[in-house]
């Protein structure tokens, strides 16, 4: 469903993505991890065109991402959840969630509102329809953000460190929603440090360092018998606690 072929990207002189090859199948959950600066956020942001790449190809559901004429259409099928939530502060939770439905999918208002309410209930925020983001906790805001993406009924959900900006107590409420999505068969790419989540639902774990993919394996193999030395080094540092 997503195919990276020799993807290259530079930020000026910095070769931030180096000949990335990766296939993500429909229904697969791929977790991408690695140290800061490894390019994992840049990688996921290339998928929906938030970052542009210079070399290689990136095809999502048969459409090349580099082809800007199709970008809007492609983005309707790609949900993206940001580390900083990025909710619209001047709109209520329900308005946040229904905006794209009304203006992009062109759904009639009543239908959009019905779907929006259903999804907010699904993420556990059935009592927060008319709350503004400023009135919600971080975990609640992120759940609204997830609902906002899900409302568009995307084929693929992309998560860029969804829990990294949350207080520890709120991380689980968001991960629970994501686990639910994975179990429902959503195709997901998740950039995260939450290894427990990876172990529970990932089909594959991708470890990136300095712009390249160092190792890709199934969770059990990845965590118990990493092949690459750099992977072992990384895991030993983060699994200490």
């Amino acid at each position: 469903m997503i195919k990276f072929s020799g993807l290259d990207k530079w930020f000026g002189d910095h070769h931030v993505l180096q000949k990335i090859d990766l296939d993500v199948a429909k229904g697969e959950v791929v977790v991408v991890c690695g140290p800061s600066g490894s390019g994992k956020s840049t990688l996921i942001r290339c998928v929906n065109g938030l970052e542009k790449y210079q070399g290689g190809s990136l095809v999502v559901d048969g459409i090349s991402v580099g082809d800007s004429a199709n970008l809007r259409r492609l983005r309707m099928e790609l949900g993206f959840v940001f580390q900083q939530f990025n909710l619209y502060p001047h709109k209520t939770a329900l308005e946040n969630v229904t905006l794209a439905l009304i203006y992009v999918r062109k759904l009639p208002r009543q239908e959009a509102i019905a779907r929006g309410k259903e999804l907010l209930r699904k993420v556990g925020l059935g009592d927060k329809f008319d709350s503004y983001p400023a009135q919600l906790s971080g975990g609640q805001q992120q759940r609204v953000a997830i609902a906002r993406s899900l409302c568009m009924q995307p084929k693929i959900m992309l998560f860029d460190e969804p829990t990294s900006a949350l207080d520890p107590e709120m991380i689980n409420e968001v991960l629970d929603v994501m686990v639910g999505l994975a179990k429902d068969g959503m195709t997901m790419i998740v950039v995260t440090h939450e290894m427990g989540f990876a172990r529970k639902v990932a089909d594959r774990v991708v470890f990136m360092d300095k712009g390249s993919i160092v190792e890709v394996s199934e969770p059990e193999t990845f965590f118990t018998a990493p092949k690459n030395e750099r992977t072992q080094e990384f895991l030993s540092k983060i699994l200490r606690h």
């Binding site: 929906n48 940001f82 502060p89 905006l99 203006y103 568009m152």
Partner: peptide
């Protein structure tokens, strides 16, 4: 206006003009 909101708007498929009209200008 923080650029993150506009990225979120772009990621959900809103056009440049829609981002201006619905997200940026009201605020």
């Amino acid at each position: 206006i923080p650029v993150g909101q506009l990225e979120a708007a772009a990621a959900s498929g809103l056009s440049r003009f829609q981002r201006l009209r619905l997200i940026m200008l009201p605020q």
